[in-house]
Structures are given as C-alpha cells and as structure tokens.
Design a binder for these strands. Structure first.
Lengths: 124, 124
DNA sequence: ATTAAACTTGAGAATGTTTATCACTTTTTA
DNA sequence: TAAAAAGTGATAAACATTCTCAAGTTTAAT
C-alpha cells in the first residue's frame, strides 16, 4: 500500500473516535477535509485497511456494516434500537448480564460469538 | 402470522440441516418443492421467522448473511476461505484455540463476541 | 358451509449497497 | 527526474434487499 492523504484521513477518522462508524458516517466526516472525496474511495480504503488488519469490519444482524479502530480482543454490545456499537472489555464478561446492566445500563437480550479462521477442508 | 406452505417449507429447510444456508441456498432448495416460489417470498419469510425468534440471522465480515435453525446459546466458527459456518458448543470454548484445533482442525485467527440488547439511552 | 377480514404470494419495479472501470493524479523507486 | 506502481473522483455496473400490488390462501365468526 502506498501512502495517500485520503486513506490516512479515513484511518484517523475511525481510530480517533470509538463510535464504530458506518461507511456513510466515515464518508461524511472525510468530506469535511476532502470535499470532493468519492464514496468509492471510502469503500476502497475501509476495505483495504480491514484486509490489512489495521481496522476491523463489524457486521451485525441489526443495522449496517461498521468499522472498528481497535483490533485487540474485546467484545461489542450492539443496541437493537439505535444500532450503535459499544466496546466491552474481556473481564466485564464474567457474570455477563448482571454486570453489563450495572455498568452500562445495557439490557442483554442475546449474544453470539463468532470465531474466524480456516477450516480443516480449506487448509488442505 | 398465518400458516403458509411456503414459510413452512423454508423453516424446514433451515431447521433440518445445520449448514447455515444463505438466502440463495434456501431459495434453490425451496424451488425443488415450489418451482414458482419467488425470491421475495424467501426473503420475506426468513426475515419474519428471524424477527419472531424462530430462526437466527447470522452476519459475518466474510461472505453473506446466513440463517441458523438453532436459537440456543452456542458459537460459530466461520471459515475465511469457504465461508461455511460451523457450530461450537459452549463447553468447547474453554482453552479455545487448542481445543478447536484438536477437535475440528480449525485454525482460529480471530474472534468476536457481539451482544445484542437495548442500550441505556434507548431504554428511556 | 359461507363469508369477510387479514394475511400471503409471485412478479416485477424500486431502492440501497458495494464493486468495477477508466482517464487522470499522486506516490514511490531507481 | 523519469518510469512504474498505486490511488483518485466520477460514474456505470452489479448485486442484494425491500416494496408494491393484484390475485390467491388462511382464519375466525357467523
């Protein structure tokens, strides 16, 4: 990857504020600095940055794709109403539901762990 | 929800085989029994069934949306190559990476837990 | 059984999201 | 500083999902 001003700006937008923005939100913020930036450029760069493991793509059943500047192990709480994504640290998972209610006022309704990797068939 | 043959067929397709099919895969299987079934009907019913908690929608960063006939607490392993989704039981999570390698030959590269619910702002 | 209301369907249009294309510009390399 | 490689904006294309609606089913109350 070569350097580019636009990609750098996109990276900063996602890294600097843990709001887990959607593509559209990144686009709106990027336009403040580069008024002519195209939506395609935002998609292209978010995807490249994810593929290089610099950002993480988050997909949930509720709402649209979002991006996360944190790539270390942690969890996400996703609100079914506003679809915002909140970070949860590993330790906060012990005694899950009560703890999340006490700490964040977040009412857990279901959760899902997904593990990415390569299956035994594809490793061949 | 009224009864309908098509919805029932769609439900059976997802419930009977733990392949976690995509919309398109459900559509292809449903056409064997209802050759005129429309893709819109498949989307409509998969969404209704998920909204009623009868099926679960699975979204991952790799590949497309899939549906799961199991709604009890369990995990998913998603292959980055073939994008298939495999079930993992809760107990199998202790000593995660080694255990999954021993048991399934699945090489874990990253994982993510997402918790759905309602945040403190939206509860107001 | 008959009927009315509510629900569902298939077909296709409409919308929304994401990727591809291409002439041009920027960055890197040597 | 020139050539190669990579990136950009604009727009078209591809793909995914939802919407619309006339016609057909299912349900519940006569």
């Amino acid at each position: 990857m070569n350097y580019s001003q636009q990609r750098n700006c996109i990276l900063e937008i996602v890294m600097s504020d843990p709001v887990h923005p959607t593509v559209e939100q990144v686009y709106e913020k990027a336009k403040l600095r580069y008024p002519n930036i195209s939506l395609g450029t935002v998609y292209r760069n978010l995807n490249q940055l994810s593929e290089h493991g610099i950002l993480k793509k988050i997909c949930s059943s509720y709402g649209s794709v979002r991006f996360d500047g944190r790539t270390d192990a942690h969890f996400h709480m996703i609100c079914k109403d506003c679809q915002r994504v909140f970070d949860v640290e590993l330790g906060e998972m012990l005694g899950l539901e009560d703890k999340l209610m006490d700490k964040f006022g977040f009412q857990v309704s279901e959760y899902e762990i997904s593990i990415q990797g390569v299956c035994c068939d594809c490793k061949k």
